[in-house]
Design a protein around this nucleic acid. Sequence first.
RNA 1: GGGCGCUUGGCUCAGUUGGUUAGAGCGGUAGAUUUACAUUCUACAGGUCAGAGGUUCAAGUCCUCUAGCGCCCACCA
Length: 928
Amino acid sequence: MADIPTRYNPKETEDKWYRYWEEKNLFSARPNPHKKPFCIVIPPPNVTGILHMGHALNNTIQDILIRYHRMKGDESLWMPGTDHAGIATQNVVEKKLAKEGLKRQDLGREKFIDRVWQWREEYGSTIIRQLKKLGASCDWGRLRFTMDQEYSRAVREAFVQLWSKKPSGLIYQDDKVINWCPRCQTALSDEEAPHRPLKGNLYYMRYPLKQGLSPKGTVPAYVVVATTRPETMLGDTAVAVNPNDKRYKKLIGTTITLPLVNREIKIISDSMVDMKFGTGAVKVTPAHDPNDYLLGKKHNLSFVNVMYPDGRMNENAGDYKDMDRFEAREVILEDLKQKGLLDKVQPHELSAGHCYRCHTIIEPYLSKQWFVKMKPLAKPAIEAVKNGRIKFHPKRWTKVYLNWMENIQDWCISRQIWWGHRIPLWYCRDCQKLALASIDDPKECPICKSANLKQDEDVLDTWFSSWLWPFATFGWPFEQKKGQSPAGTVPSSSEDLSYFYPTSVLVTAPEIIFFWVARMIMAGMEFIKEIPFKDVYIHGTVRDIEGKKMSKSLGNIIDPLDIIAEYGADALRFSLISITAQGQDVFLSKERFEQGRNFANKIWNASRFIMMNLEQQQGQSPAGTVPDLCVFFSATRIGGSAKNLGGKKEGLGIVNRWILSRFYSVLKELDRNLAAYKFNEAANLLYGFFWHEFCDWYLEMIKSDIGNKHNQVVMYKVLEKSLRVLHPFMPFITEELWQRLQGFLPKGTVPANSIMIQPWPHIQEQIIDKKAETQLSSLIELITAIRNIRQELEIPAQGKINARIFITSSPRKELLQKMAVHIRNLAGVEELSFARGYKKSAGTFETVLKDMHIVIHLSGATDVQKHKHRLQEKIKKLEAEIRSKEKLLGNRNFVEKAPGEIIESEKAKLKELRGRFKKMEAIKDGLR
RNA sequence: GGGCGCUUGGCUCAGUUGGUUAGAGCGGUAGAUUUACAUUCUACAGGUCAGAGGUUCAAGUCCUCUAGCGCCCACCA
C-alpha cells in the first residue's frame, strides 16, 4: 500500500477526525430508556484558563472513561462547560484596562461588566478549543457557562432556598474577621487563603503600665508582648494573659498606655493564652486577628480597624495614616526603638494566608460579610460518604473529606468584586429595610411598596455557583421554567436530570476536594435530595521532574499544546496515562512523551504491514472482491465464535489460537483495570500486548506464511480489535487506521461510521486457551535460549547454526516439531532436529531448559572459555535456588502448614532444578 | 500539633487479596538491518525492595518503631 507513509503523522489526522466526529454528532447523548446512562460533568475550567498538564491529565482520564463506556453501549454523556471564575477573570480584565490607564471604577460597574463579557466573547473559548485538540469527546451542544442566564437563575434559586430555609435561614450577615486580600480588595473564604510558611520575626514590644513603677518596685514599668505583625499594635484594645500565670497575676485589670497612640487599654485574663509562647502576654487586636476577635467579643473590647481595604493604614493609625501596612511596620519598629520600647527581635518561622489568585499576604480584616451556615448542610453529605453511597478512589481521600466536613466552618460567600452573580438581596431606600431575597428582580418594597430599591453590592463566591454544577447544568430549577425549547432540540424539562443524575463519576485533583467536591455533595443533598455522583476519582498533581508543581512563575511548565504539536495528542494522552499510577503525583519531563510517540508509530507500522499484506494477497482491487477472504470474514463476523473458523478452532493453528487467546486474556484484565480506575495498568497492559506479543512474536512468526488464510483473518481480527480497545486511550490514530481497515471488509458490508461507536469487544471465554498460551511461552523460551547462545558465542547473524533438541516427552516433541519453522526463522537455525534420548557428541555447545536439552552444532572456532564461564554462572544460580528449595521443603512447619498445592509445586520445582543442575554439570565437564 | 503519601536496578516508576526466579520505560553494553517500523529488532549487565523489630510455614506486600523526602489541615500571638 504505497499510500501509507512509514511514519505516523498526527498533524494529518487529528483535526480531520475531530471535525468528522463533530459533524456526525457522535458526542451527543440523550436520555435513552434502552441504555444505561453514564455521565461525567467536567470540572469546568476557568474562562481565563489555558490548557496545562493538569487539565490534560484530568481530561484524558475523563475522555477514556467516556469513550470506554460509549463503546460498551452506555448512553454516555460528558457535560462540558466553563466557570466564570470571578476574581481571576476580573483580575485579567483589570490588567487589560490598566494598560489603557483605566481602573474599573473609571468605567463603573455596568460598563466594566460589559468589558468582561466582551473579553469572554473574544478569549473565553480558548480552553474549549484546546480540549478539542486533546480529543475530548464532550457533548458540546450542551456547553454551559456559570454566568449563563439559565445557570444564574439556579444560583439565585439556591441562595433563596437557603435564605428561606425553615426554621431559620442558612444565610446570615455578620461582622467578622475574615480573610481579606488587599490587592483584590475582597473577602475570601478560608479555602481561598491557603497558609504558606513565611520567614519573619517575633518582635518583643514594651507596653508601659499606666501607674508605672510602684514605690517598692513590686510592679514593673511595662509588660512585654510578642508579635509577628507590629503594625497591628495600633489597633490593640487589650493585653491578655493566662489567669494562672503567676508572673502577671497582679497585673490583671491594670491599665496600659498603648505606645505611639497613647490609648489606655486593660490587661485581661483568658485561658486561651498560652503561657509558654513568647512572654505569656499577648496583645489583642480584635479587628485584625481571628483569635483576638473572639477575645474581643468575649471580653467586650472595642474593635479598632486600622487599615483601608487596600492595606494602607487608615485614620485610626494616627501618624501612620496612608502608609502601606508593611512600610508602617518598619516605621513603627523604628519609632519604638527610639523610645526604648523595642525589647528584642527574634527570627521566627510563621505561616500566613495567601490569596489563591494573586498570592498577596492575606490581612485578617474585620468586615461585614454574608455567610452560609454549614453544619446542617454537612450532615447529610457526611452520611452519604459514610454509608458508601459515594466512594472515593483511592480510598484514603475519604478520611480527608470526612475530617474537613466534620470540622466545617461557616462559608463566607460575599465578594467585593463586580464580576459574578450579584447577591439577590434588595434593600428599600425609603423604609431603610432589607426588602427581600428574590429570584426575580423585585419591582417594589413589600413593606412600604416603594419602587426605590437597591440590590446588595456584593457578588457571590464563584464556588457558590460551581457547587450546583451537577444539576444546574441540566436546567435545574424546573418548576419556574416557562416555555419549552423548539420541538425536538434540547430537552428543557427535568428529563435529562432524572436520566443522568446522579452522575457516574467525578474526576478531579486533590486540591479541589474542599472547594468543590465536598460542596457539590452538600448541594446535591440539599437541593436535589440525592447524591451528585457515585464515584470520585482523585488523580495526582502534575509536577516537574524535580517534584515541583508546574507553574508559570517557576517557569517549569511543559505545555501540552507544544507536546501535541511535536508528538501528537495520542502520544500526550498515552504517555500521561501510562506514568500516572493511581492517585500518585506525576513527575514529568519532556522525554516521557517519546514513549507515547513511539508506541503510536509502532501501531501505525504494524497496521501498515498488515494492510500491505492483506492487499498483496488480494491484488490492487478493493479487498472485498477476493472471494476466499470474503468467506472467511463473513464466517468469522467480528465477535463471532472461533469455532466457525475453517470448521473448528484447532484448524487455525497454534500460533493463531495463541494470539487470540492472549487478546481475550488481556481484554479481561483490561476491563478489570478500567473498572478499578487503574488507568496506567490498563495502558501498560495494552502496550505490552500490542508491541511485544502481537508485533514482536506473533507477526514475526506468521511473517513467513502471511498469505495463509488463517493468518490473514486472525491478524486482521486482532488488529481491528486492538484498535478498538486502544481507542479510548489514543482516539485519533485508532480512528485513522480503523477507517483504512474498513477497505478490507467484504463488499456489501456497510462500513460503520466510526471506531468510536463500535462495540467494545466482548470477552470470549471459549477462545481463551491457556494450553496454547503455555505452549507458546515454552516455544518463546526455547527461541530466546538459542538466540542467547548465539550472541554469547558471538556467532554472526548470518552464521549458520544447527540445533538438536532433546526432549523426553513425546507430545511435547511433536508439538515443537510442528513449530519448527518458527524456531528456524526466529532463532536463525539452519538444521533443526528433535530426539528423545540425549547423546553426547563432540564440538557442541549446550544448555538445558526445563524439559529441553539444547545442543548447538557449530562450524568454525568459538570461545570455549567464555561459554564455560557463562555455564558456571548459571550453575551457581541453580545451586543457590536448589539450596533454598531444599531448605524450604526440609522445614517441617512448611510441610505441615502450607497448602498442598504449594508444596506440590515446590517439590516439582526442586525436582526440575536438580535435573537441570545435573545436566548442566555434565555439559560443563564435557567442555575442554 | 494532627493527618496522609513516598523510600524497589544508574534515572523515573509499577507491583492486585502475602505463595515459584521482583517487572517496565529511559539510560548502559554488545550485536543486527536492501525485509512494516532506527520513533526498529536481538541479546546481555544491573536490585540484601530505606533501616530495625514483629506476625506467618512463607513478607517488597501485614503490624510496630526509626530515619529521610513530600503534601494537606490547624487560631501558637
